[in-house]
Amino acid sequence: MAEKKSLGKEFSKGIIIENPVLRLVLGTCPTLATTTSVTSAIGMGISASIVLICSNIAISALRKVIPAKVRIPAYIVVIASFVTIVQMLVKAFVPVLNEQLGVYLPLIVVNCIILGRAEAFASKNGVLASAVDGLGMGIGFTAALFVMGTIREILGAGTFLAGFGGLIGNNFDGFSIPFLNSNPILIFILAPGGFFVFGLVMALANKLAESKGKPKAELKGCENCPMAKICNVRDKVEGCDKKEVEA
């Protein structure tokens, strides 16, 4: 197995080059919804990362047992179990976060980053590589949320890390930004501002990835597509290599 050689690469690719939010454009809904404050962004990032790592490990370990035809329901069951565990833990130990995230916490079940990594990576790679991939993707997701949350909270509410004490169990209530605190630019914590910031941060991530020699994230035909085996689009599209499908 060539796993050991690429472990470092599997880890680092999730942070910028294949950042799930900014480069693969997955998990957009929780991203826009929870980045209104840094505290809820960090909470969301960490919860989703834990579920991602655990589900990657479990699915990778079970990859030879799960029949291909029912793999999606099987993945969902695995992911849902971990989400339930995380949700119970959050409710018990950080009830503030549970209130802040609201419906988005149980919705991690259908977070497409987690299902995407299960389908595209964990179902094809070993347990260790999948765990490292999950960790890298989780950190990338949390970092993207943190950057967006910082911009949106500072400009839109004039605070930074407000209510963070609730996460770590003390009274720390973040910092207040002098001028913006009394003149918040409200649009940044509303949905349109979220999209503005999303687009700008995405452009920045593309620029960073390009400077590392990787062009824009693009789908390289059918080979990257997890659905290639059961998809029959190739037969209809011209120029698609039919031999690959049969093989």
Binding site: P184, I185, L186, I187, F188, L190, P192
Partner: peptide
């Protein structure tokens, strides 16, 4: 519109 949403 941005100003209206930001500073009603």
């Amino acid at each position: 519109i941005v100003l209206l949403a930001s500073f009603p």
